[in-house]
Design a binder for these strands. Structure first.
Lengths: 147, 147
DNA sequence: AATATAAAGTTAGTATGCCAAATGTTTGCC
DNA sequence: GGCAAACATTTGGCATACTAACTTTATATT
C-alpha cells in the first residue's frame, strides 16, 4: 500500500474503464460512444439546448463539443438549429433515432456502472465519490499556484 | 448522494486533473507532459527498455507508445537504439536532458499528488486506491460479457 | 528444413480533450 | 448612438488512446 502514484493510478484506471465501456457499446451494436451518449441523454431530458449549455453540462471545452456534435449530426442523431432569439447560438435537437440510440447505450452504461460498485460496501463507494468530487474544486483550471 | 453517474464522475474528474496537471507543468516551464514524464522516470530507473516493456509499464497500447516516443525523441529526451539480441526490438535510451526534464516534472507531479490527498484521512485514500485498482481486474479488455 | 504462429513496432483511421485565435453577435456604458 | 467588452461557436494545432492492418523477425511444429 506504499505506492503513492495516485495520478498514475487514476489515469490508467480511467483508460481501462473507457476502453472496456466503449468496447461493450460496440459489442452491443450501439453506434455512439459513452461521451456522445451523454449528449443524447441531456437532449432527451430537455431538447434544444445550446452548444454552450451542453459543453458545461458534460464538462468539456466548447471546442470539444463542436466535434462531438459534428459526429452525432453526421449519423443523424442530432441536428443544429439556429436560435430564434440569439443569432450566436445554436439549438441542438435530438432526433427520434438519437433518442433510441441513447436508450440502447443507457442499458450498457448502467450495467458497467453497477460493475464498478460490485464488491464494495456503500460507504466505501461514497468515499470514492467524495474524493472524486473534490477534484472539481481543487483542480478547476489554472495550473496550481495562486489565482 | 443519490447521484449514480459514477462513470461520468470518473471521466470528468480525470479531465480536470489532467488539464490542471499539464497546465501546471507548462507553467513551470517543463517541456514534457505527465504521460511523457512517466516514460522518462522508467528509463531513469532502468535505461534501454524496449517499446513493449514501456507500453506495458505505463499501461498503454504499443501504438500509443510509438507516438509518445516519437515526440520525446524529436526534442532529444530519448533515442531509439536497435537491440543487439532481437532485431525486432528497439531499446529506448534516455538522454541527460531527458533525465533533467523528468526531474523537473517530478517536482510538480509530486505536488499535485499531495494536493489530491489533502483533506482526506489515510484510510479514505486507501479505499479510493483500492477501488481504482479493482478496475484492472474488472475492466481488463473485452467489452463485458464472458471471456 | 519448411511452414505456421507469435511477437515487436509502425501506420492509418477515429475519438476525446485542451488552448489560442478568429468570426460574428450581443450587451454594457457613456 | 457608438464603441468596448463579453459571449457563442468554430477552426487549427497538439497530445493521448484505441483498433485493425501490415512488415519484419523470431519461435514452434511437424
Amino acid at each position: 500500500m506504499k505506492d503513492d502514484r495516485l495520478i498514475f493510478l487514476i489515469f490508467t484506471a480511467q483508460n481501462k474503464l473507457r476502453t472496456y465501456l466503449n468496447n461493450a457499446l460496440v459489442a452491443a451494436n450501439v453506434r455512439v460512444t459513452f461521451v456522445q451518449a451523454g449528449i443524447l441523454f441531456l437532449l432527451k431530458q430537455s431538447n434544444g439546448r445550446t452548444m454552450s449549455d451542453l459543453s458545461q453540462l458534460i464538462g468539456v471545452d466548447n471546442s470539444t463539443l463542436t466535434g462531438l456534435v459534428d459526429r452525432l449530426e453526421k449519423v443523424g442523431f442530432v441536428a443544429r438549429q439556429a436560435s430564434p432569439t440569439d443569432r450566436r447560438s445554436l439549438l441542438i435537437q435530438v432526433t427520434p433515432e438519437g433518442i433510441a440510440e441513447g436508450d440502447k447505450a443507457k442499458m450498457i452504461i448502467k450495467r458497467v456502472n453497477e460493475e464498478i460498485k460490485t464488491g464494495f460496501p456503500l460507504e466505501e463507494m461514497e468515499i470514492f465519490k467524495k474524493i472524486l468530487r473534490s477534484f472539481f474544486e481543487k483542480f478547476n483550471k489554472n495550473g496550481g499556484q495562486q489565482k
